[in-house]
Design a protein around this nucleic acid. Structure first.
Lengths: 211, 211, 211, 211
DNA sequence: GTCTAATCGAGACGGTACGTCTCGTCTTCAC
DNA sequence: GTGAAGACGAGACGTACCGTCTCGATTAGAC
C-alpha cells in the first residue's frame, strides 16, 4: 500500500520483500515500544532496510502504522454458527481477540487520535479498516435473510443507515469495553451485549413499520 | 491534581495560579498542535512558567493531558426533558458536542492510546473521566424510577453490570460515530441510537425476568 | 584525463563529448556551490549524464576537480614584454587573474587541502598543475638568457633548485596575497613583488659566485 | 572564542571546560580523519559533550576548525639568534614545523579553501591567524633596528606595505613548499630562501631611496 | 527582623530521534 | 556493453525536545 510514482518504467524496481518486512517490523515495534516510542529508524533497522527506503514508500509514522494495523483486521471472518445472534457473537469475540493484541489496541487508538487532526489520515483509516470490515455486517444480514431471520430491506438508504449504526455500536462498544473500561469482552459480556443490540434493532424495526 | 510532596511546611509555597494557567495552556496547545506535537516546553512557555515548574508538578505529558481533558467533561449534566429517552438524548448530544472540540477528541483518544501500555495512566483516566461521569447514568436511572419509567432494581450486582454496559455502548458508539466514522452525532442519529438502546435494554430486562 | 580500461575494443565506445561536458559541469558547480557542497550527483545532472557514467570515469570528487581545475591553468603563457622583469610581471598578473575566478581559487585550495592526506592526489596535482606550469619559468629564463639578462647556468642541479624556489615563492606569494590576505594582486603590488624577487635572486647569484 | 550571547546573567552558565575539550577533540579528529571526513558528531563524542553543546557555541565546522587551528600558531615565537637573518631562519623553521603537523596543514588549507566562498570565515582566519602572527614580523624588524641592521622606517604606510609583502612571501612560499611541492622546508632550503628575501628587500629599499 | 527552605525564572547540559541529503553501489530496461 | 533511471544500505546533517542540572533571585513562614 505504499505510494508509488505512477508511471516509472526505467530504473531499479522497488524490492517487494521490503514492504512485507517493514510492515512486520512495524507491528513488532508496536508490541515492544508502542506507537509513541516507535521510531522509523528503529523500524528500518528491524526490517533490515535503510531509513531512506522506508521514507521513499511511506510519508510518515501514521501512514505506516495504519497499513500495518489494517492487515490485522483482515483475519476477521463471519463464522456460520446457525443463528444471527450466534454469528454476531462469534465475530464480536474475534474482534475482541484482535483488540487484545497490543499492536492492535495501541496502534489503532493512536492513529485514530492522530486522525482527529489529519483528514487524509482519517480517510486512510476509513478506507483500509472501517469500510473494509463493513463486509461482515453485510454478510451477516444477507445470511440472516436467507435463513428467514430478517426480512428483506425495502429501503436501501435506511438499510445503509442501519449498517452504519450497527457498526458504530458494535465497534464502539467493544473498543470502549476493552480499552477504556479495561474489562474483558468475554463470552458472557458479548452474549448480553448482543441480546441488547438485536432486541433494540428488532424493536426499532417494528416501530418504524408501525409509524 | 498535580502531585505534591506530602509534608512541606516551610519554604515558598507553590503558586496556585500556575496550575490553572498550565492546564489552560495545555488545552490551547492541544487545539493548535495536537497531542503528538505538543511539547512540555511549549506548554510552559504559553503558561508563562519555567519548564522546571511544570515538571515539579506533573510526571509527564500524559498525566498533564489527562488532567487538562478531564476538566472538560465536568461540564456534562443531565437535563430534565420530561422523559428518560429525552434525557438520554440530551446528555448524548452534550457529550457529542464536547467530542466535537479538538482538544477533547484529540487529547482523549491520545491518552487512551497511551493507556493501553500504561496501567497507571489507564487508572487515572478511569478515575478522573469514566467513573466520574457514570454519575450521569445513575442520575438518569434514579430520575426515571421516580417517574415510574423504570422499576426498582432488585439485584444490585446486575444493576452495576447494566450501568457499565450502558456506559460502554453510549460512550463507545458516540466516540466511534464522531471520530472513526467521521459523521456528526446529530439529533437525528441520536434519536435513532437512543431508541435502539432503550428498546434493547427493555427487551433484555423482560427476558431476564422470564428466565 | 579520466582513466580508461587499457584494452576495450568491443561494445559501445564512451562518448567523448561526455568528458568535456562533465568537466565543464564540474567547473560550473564549483562556481555555484564550491567544493564542499559540490556533489557528484549534481555534476552528473548538470552534464546530462548518469551518475554511473561519471563513476566509471573518475574515482571520486577530488580527481574530478583536479582535472577540471588543471585545464584552467593551461591558458597561462609567457608574454614577450621586452625585459625579464616585465615578462614576469605579465605572467604573475595572468596567474592572479585566474586565481580571481571562484572555480579556480576554491577548487584549487580544496584539492590541495585534501592532498595533504592523500599522496596519490598530491601527485596528480603536481603532475597536472605544478610541473606543467614550470614551463613558464624555464621559458622565461631561456628568453632572458637569449636577451643577455641572465648568464648561462653552469650547474644544472643548482639551476633546478632555483626554478623550484622561484616557483614556490611566486606561486605561494600570489596565492597568499589573493586568498589569505584578501588583497588584490594588482599591478602595483606585482611590480613591488617582482623587484624584490629579481633583486634577491641576483644578489644570491653574486654571493654564490663569490663563495 | 565561541560566540556568546552578550549579556545573559541568568540560567546555568556554560561549562568552561567544554570549550577546551572540544578544541582538543577537533584537532585529534583532524589528525585522524582530516577536515573533509571530520564530523561534528564525532568531535562531540570525542570531547564527551553533546552535539547541541557544540552547535550552541560554534556556527559550524569551519568556525570550529579555524579556532582549533589558530591555537597552534600561538606557539610561534621569534628566537634571538643574534642576527636578522638567523632570527628569520629560526621562525621560518618553526612555522615549517607546525605545517608538518597534519592537523595544521590539513585544517588550515581546508578553511582557506572554504573562506574563498565565505567572507566572514576569511575575516575570522585573518583575525585569529594572520594578523595575530604579524607580531613576529614587527618584533623582528624592531629587534633588527635596535641592532642597527635596519634603518628606522620614515614612512609608516610604506612600512605597513612591506610587512604585508614579507608576510605574503614568507607564509606563501613556506606553505607552497611544504604542501604543494611536497618538499621539506629544511634548514638548507630555509637558508637559501632567507638570503633571497633579505637581499631582495635590501635592494628594493636602496632603489626606493635612489628614486 | 532575620533565618531558612522550597519556590521561581532562565538556560545549559547529555541524549535521542527527526526527516533530509549525499554517498557509492546495484539492478533493471532501452539502445 | 553502454547509458539513463532510480532503488538500495549507509551514515552525517542541523534541529527540536527530552528530562535533568545548575544558577541567582524571590517569597513566606518559623524563629
Amino acid at each position: 500500500m505504499p505510494s508509488r510514482s505512477p508511471a516509472s518504467r526505467t530504473g531499479r524496481p522497488r524490492s517487494a520483500a521490503a514492504d512485507a518486512a517493514i510492515l512486520a517490523a512495524t507491528r513488532a515495534a508496536l508490541v515492544e515500544l508502542g506507537w509513541s516510542k516507535l521510531t522509523l529508524g528503529d523500524v528500518a533497522a528491524r526490517a533490515g532496510v535503510a531509513k531512506t527506503t522506508l521514507y521513499r514508500r511511506w510519508a510518515g509514522k501514521n501512514e505506516l502504522v495504519v497499513d500495518a494495523v489494517a492487515e490485522l483486521f483482515d483475519e476477521l471472518e463471519l463464522p456460520d454458527r446457525g443463528s444471527l445472534a450466534a454469528d454476531i457473537e462469534g465475530v464480536v469475540l474475534q474482534f475482541a481477540a484482535i483488540l487484545a493484541r497490543p499492536e492492535a489496541r495501541n496502534g489503532l487508538m493512536a492513529v485514530v487520535a492522530e486522525s482527529t487532526r489529519d483528514d487524509a489520515l482519517r480517510d486512510r483509516i476509513r478506507t483500509l479498516v472501517v469500510e473494509r470490515q463493513k463486509r461482515l455486517v453485510l454478510q451477516g444480514r444477507a445470511r440472516a435473510q436467507r435463513r428467514g431471520e430478517l426480512p428483506e430491506e425495502p429501503d436501501p438508504e435506511e438499510a445503509a443507515r442501519t449498517v452504519d449504526l450497527i457498526f458504530d455500536v458494535v465497534a464502539g462498544a467493544v473498543v470502549h469495553r476493552a480499552l477504556v473500561s479495561g474489562e474483558p469482552a468475554d463470552e458472557m459480556w458479548v452474549r448480553g451485549f448482543t441480546r441488547v443490540l438485536l432486541l433494540g434493532l428488532a424493536g426499532a424495526a417494528e416501530d418504524s413499520v408501525d409509524v
